[in-house]
Nucleic acid binder design. Sequence first.
DNA 1: CTCCAGTTGAAAGTGGATGTCATAATAACG
DNA 2: CGTTATTATGACATCCACTTTCAACTGGAG
Lengths: 143, 143
Amino acid sequence: MKRAKKKVFTDFMTQRGLKSTKQRDLILDAFLSSDRHLSIEELYLKIRAKHPNIGYATVYRTLKLFAEAGIAREMQFGDGQTRYEHVGEGEHHDHLVCTRCGSIEEFENETIEQLQTEVAASRGFLIERHRLELYGLCGNCRK
Amino acid sequence: MKRAKKKVFTDFMTQRGLKSTKQRDLILDAFLSSDRHLSIEELYLKIRAKHPNIGYATVYRTLKLFAEAGIAREMQFGDGQTRYEHVGEGEHHDHLVCTRCGSIEEFENETIEQLQTEVAASRGFLIERHRLELYGLCGNCRK
DNA sequence: CTCCAGTTGAAAGTGGATGTCATAATAACG
DNA sequence: CGTTATTATGACATCCACTTTCAACTGGAG
C-alpha cells in the first residue's frame, strides 16, 4: 500500500517532468507513515524534528503535489487548519470529529450516499463530491 | 418571521445589557432581507452602498452577535470566507453548493439524519451537530 | 562534466478575521 | 432635560495560515 502510493507519486512526477529530491522523499515517507489528517504544520514539525533544515514552504508545496497526484486530499474541519488525509483508489469515506479531543474517525455508509444522489437528482443537481461530518463526543470522551 | 427574529435579538440584547443602535438595526434589516449565506464582506458592501459610513468591524461584530443570539449561524463552504445563514427555531438543513456559479440551495432529509444517528451510535459516538454538503453543478449550470 | 529547468528555504506578501483605542452615542439617573 | 457611566463605533493595527517571490542550489539529460 505504501509502495503503491509511492509508485503513483513517482509516475505522476515523471509524467509531469518533475524531479525527485531528498525532501520530497522525506515528506512522502513522513506523510505515509503518519496518522491520517495531519495539518501542514503538524507534518512540518514532525519532519523538522529529524531534519531541521527543511522548510515549511517545501512541506506545503509537496502536500499540494500529493493532492494533485491523487494520493492525498485537503480537508477542513473548522479548526482553522487545512488537513491532508490519505486517499486510496476511488475510495471515499466520511468523518466523525470529536469536539473534545479532536480525534477523527472515518466511516462509510452506502445508503446515505444513495440518498444523497436521490436528493440531488430531484433538484436537477449533479454531485461532483460531498462532505459529511458528524461533530460530537467520541466513545472515549463520553466516559 | 422577520418580526420574530427581531424580537429574539432585542430580547437577547436586553438580557445582556447591550445597547440598541442605528448600525445594529441597519445590519439586522440588511441581514434579514438578504439572500441566505452572505459573507461578512458581501453584507458589508451591500449596507455600505446606502450607508457609506459604516465600518467593516461593526458588521463583523454584529454578525457574531446574531450568531450568539441564535438567529444566525456561521458556515464555511471552502471558499475562504465565513458565511452567515439564517436560523429558525431548532430547524436544520443541509446544502447543495454549485461549484460553478456558487449558488447554495438547502434541503432536508429525515432518513439521512436517521442513518447518521445510527452510524454514530454504532461507534459509541454522540452527535452534537453535523454538516452535509453536496458540491456539484446546479440545474442551471448543467444546461 | 555542463548546463538548464526544476527546487528549495528564507523572507516577504496576502486576505480574511480579530484586537486596539480614542471618539461618539446610548440610556439610566438626577 | 443635562450629566454621566457604559457601551458601541470605525479607522487602523495585528494575527494567522497560508501563498508567492527570488536568489542560491540541485537533479539528471546530453
